[in-house]
Design a protein around this nucleic acid. Sequence first.
DNA 1: CGTTCAGTTGACTAAGGTCAATTCCCGTGG
DNA 2: CCACGGGAATTGACCTTAGTCAACTGAACG
Lengths: 190, 190
Amino acid sequence: MTENFNKYGASFFVDEAHFEELFLLLKSVTLKKNNFFLKSGEKCKYLGFVESGTMRSYYINENGIEKNFDFYFDRNFFTDYESILCNTKSNLNIQALEETKILLLNKEDLQKLYLKEAYWQEFGRVMAERIFLNAKKRIEDLLYYSPERRYTNLLKEAPLVFEKIPQKLIASYLGITPQSLSRIRNRITH
Amino acid sequence: MTENFNKYGASFFVDEAHFEELFLLLKSVTLKKNNFFLKSGEKCKYLGFVESGTMRSYYINENGIEKNFDFYFDRNFFTDYESILCNTKSNLNIQALEETKILLLNKEDLQKLYLKEAYWQEFGRVMAERIFLNAKKRIEDLLYYSPERRYTNLLKEAPLVFEKIPQKLIASYLGITPQSLSRIRNRITH
DNA sequence: CGTTCAGTTGACTAAGGTCAATTCCCGTGG
DNA sequence: CCACGGGAATTGACCTTAGTCAACTGAACG
């Protein structure tokens, strides 16, 4: 278990004393490429953690256009937090972009942890805070900057994205069409 | 104190048993129109709560253009959560749009509450979760919809905004110029 | 080899940005 | 009570950029 703690502890934000209690609740699952962790219309029942691979969440609008909400890489959490918290049907799809190993924490198990002791409430608070900070960054990006600037920001801050993610999905993540992203790239490099 | 609980309890998300402990930590302050709760470059030291009046948070970009991040009305919390959590200098300004009564909770006092008992960790978790859900809605709005659609969404979901907030600030909140908002309104009503 | 799909490119449209002028509104002081 | 000043909102003319639709290219894969 110490081995597992060394492997995951830092990414889970738990100390060694509490690690095992959490780790024993996790189920390991492997998703094949394009398989789903969550489909629109379902209630989200799990907190997910990427062990290896890549996931994406996206929304399909009324015209059938996919809007990429986010990408998730190694050692990061993903879920539809809104669906979990509000116990509502999700409007997101969450899908593996390649063969992806994930760890699942059942929502009820998480809530049982919360009831056990202050430590887990704190764990939940810190996790919610981190998720919020990510969301705030995304708002700033969308609100403050032009599409072109969002592209150059992403290039600088997450170059990994451009190695692992098809360009049309990146375009959607940036809030533009694939054609526009192609033209922005052309504009910048020439 | 029961009177105060009836007045604020529901908005604070605390039960009656814990209300007094929180309420006694609050300082009441009145901001005159255009006065600041927080200025860019400062560290945010307080969690704020609007008792009556209106606040806004905004960012000034490298060209000196104001970008309205959010508005806050009666009985809502506001702060730069990022500055508080990360202990960093804020890049936001938070300002009263009219004479506004606010209640302040010192960041250290909040953190002391967290250490006291699980109840306050849970309080912090629930607050962070709520703040996140708001942020997620904002991302969805900016990512999924056109400026015109964002305007009609706002009209539907927060008509109050149009009674209390100058149009040029609403435009900025929507991520467009005042001129564009004026034209969108014109386009829709004629 | 074909098929498929991502990415690019072209031609055109639409929508928002920019700069400037004008109008409207409101508060203040004569 | 009116005149004036100042900022908000609107409007016009024009520019820039993203969206749309369609054609084409190229790489991946059976």
